[in-house]
Structures are given as C-alpha cells and as structure tokens.
Amino acid sequence: MKEELFVSGRNIPNIDPYLHIWHWQIPLYLFLGGLAAGILFFAGYFVVMQKEKDMQASVKWAPLLAPFALALGLFALFLDLKHQLYFWRLYTTVRFTSPMSWGAWTLMFITPLSVIWVASYMKEMFPRWDWKFEILNKFEAFAIKYRKTMAWTIMALAIILGVYTGILLSAFNARPLWNTSILGPLFLVSGLSTGLAFTMMISKSKYERKVLGRIDLILITVELFLITHMFMGFLAGSAAKIEAAELFLGGDFTVTFWAFVVVLGLIFPAIMEILELRGYHVPIWIPSTFILIGGLVFRFVMVEAGQITRFLY
C-alpha cells in the first residue's frame, strides 16, 4: 500500500482537498465570450462576403446581443477577482506570456467595436431611431463608411477572443486536463457554433437559416472530431493526462460530459439540422437551445474537472 498525505494539517480554503479557486464565474465568462465571438465573427464574415441583404439576422440583429454578452462576461470575470479594487492593474501592462492579459486587451478592443457595429445598424433596424446629437450622426456616417474595415477587424478579434477562451485554460501546465493545445481550436469552434445557434434562433428568413444550418453542421462535425482527438491525445500522453481523461471515461464527469455535451449538445442538434435540411419541419429553437446549453455545460465541465486534475498528491 502506498499513501501520501499532509501531516501538518494543511486545509487551505478553495485549495484543499482539491483546487476550486474558479467558481461559476469563469465558465460563464468563457461561454459568453465564445458566444459573442461566434456572433461577431459571422456578422463580419457576411459583410465581407457582401451577403448583408440575405443575412439580416446575422449582420444586424444577432450582434445586438454581443455587447451585452461581453459586458455580462466581463462583469462575471470582475466578480471572480478577489482583489477587485486593483482590477485596473490589468490595463497598466501588456504581458504576452499571460493569456489573461491577452483576453483583457482583446475585450478592451472588441467590446467598443461591437457597440459601434450595432450603432451603425441602429437606423436600419429601427427606422425611427434618432441619435439626437450631430456629432453622433457624423460618427455613424464614419462607421458606415469604414464598415468593411470594421468587419475585417472584428473577425480577427473574434477569432482571437474565441481561441483565447480555450488558451486561458490550456496555458496551465499544472492541470493536465487543460494543458492541451487542442483546447484553443475546440473552444473557438464551440464558441462559433453557439453564436450561430443563437443567430439561427432569431432569424426569420428561411434561406438564412438554411445557410447557417449548413455551416453549423460543419462546425459540429469539426467539434466532434476535435473532442475525439483530444481524448486520443490524452490517452497517448503521460500518466497525469491519462488520469485526467479517465475522469470522462468512467470517472465522475462521464455522464455529464457524454450525455449533456456530446449527445444532447452536439449529436442531437446535428440530427435535427440534418432533418431540417432534408425538408422535415423541425422547430428551429430545439437544436439552437440544445447547442447553447451544451456549450454552457461543456465549459462548466471543463473548468470543474480541470481543477481536480493535478500532478502531485
């Protein structure tokens, strides 16, 4: 028998018996960040592709949610901070090695940009909208003029944001479950997919839903592929990684992950979307809601499970 234990009575709050320093705030923040990244990416994409007329929901209506999602996500992140009055320290320095610094700065740029994006479409969405001040009208004209540049910038920032939500976790080599570079692309694809799901839900045009549905199907396939790949990587890895994977392959998180994330969050909506494309009538909110819930559960599971995995003790 082998045993290893603390004999000096170590029992630090949130650290022993296992790490739990990040609560619900971080996974919620990651989810909202991914959702906003997905919405904004496709808004920019369809503007660049000059499909604005056909893709009303993606370009105009869905981005309405993005600033709110980002603000709410940032608020959740703020709640997570333990030394809140010093949060401004994030913006006194740029640290390239720290994903959290990357994230803070990306959000610093993409949040105002998303507000400008929405503002530039305000008059198209609400014909009786009036900016009241002349300077705001001028600014709107300026924003509309450079919309394409804005679209490119927003796409780039959205990808950084989406990847960042995964890299934030994968940068920690102390947590074997997180420490896999596939987490960046995986979170990006999952974020794009949740963004699309939201857009599909509010879209009124049949054509738009069909196009988005097709893209979403591709994303779901890629996501399933990445998840398989992630587990293959774990099982071919070091002892700590195998132990981490076993949390999902028979361990405490097996049911939550495979039932709620993979089956209900990915495979079921994919089947629904295939049926829809084949011509069966499926209420659009069903796959969309399941994708959104699946994405949220996925982030909660990853954050919770990742904190349990470790090298020592």
Binding site: L77, L81, A171, F172
Partner: peptide, 9 residues
C-alpha cells in the same frame, strides 16, 4: 488583482 491564474498554474 486576485484573478487566480497563478494558483491554477
């Protein structure tokens, strides 16, 4: 700022 990143790492 107490973000906890170092504790996780």
């Amino acid at each position: 700022i107490g973000c906890g990143a170092c504790i996780e790492s």
